[in-house]
C-alpha cells in the first residue's frame, strides 16, 4: 500500500515537472519563436536584445 502511494506521488511529480516545462516552451514559442507578423513586430526589440533569431 505504502509503496503504491509513493510510486503514485513520484509519477505526479514527474507529470507536474513535465507540464511546467511544456508551459515554459509554449511561452518561449510566443515570445521568441513564432513568426506571425504581428507577434514578430511586438516582440521585435526584446527578440533582438535577447538574441533570439529574429528574421
Amino acid at each position: 500500500m505504502t509503496t503504491k502511494t509513493i510510486t503514485r506521488a513520484q509519477d505526479n511529480t514527474l507529470l507536474s515537472i513535465g507540464f511546467a516545462a511544456m508551459l515554459g516552451f509554449a511561452l518561449l514559442f510566443v515570445a521568441g519563436y513564432a513568426q506571425a507578423a504581428i507577434l514578430h513586430d511586438a516582440a521585435h526589440d526584446q527578440r533582438h536584445a535577447m538574441a533570439f533569431p529574429c528574421h
Binding site: G24, D45, Q46
Partner: peptide
C-alpha cells in the same frame, strides 16, 4: 511591449529552470 515580452520570455525560462531544479 518590450517589457511585456521580456517578462513573458523570462517566465518561459523560469518555468523550464524550476522544472529542472525540481527534477
Amino acid at each position: 511591449l518590450t517589457v511585456g515580452f521580456n517578462m513573458l520570455g523570462y517566465a518561459g525560462f523560469g518555468l523550464l529552470l524550476v522544472a529542472l531544479m525540481a527534477l
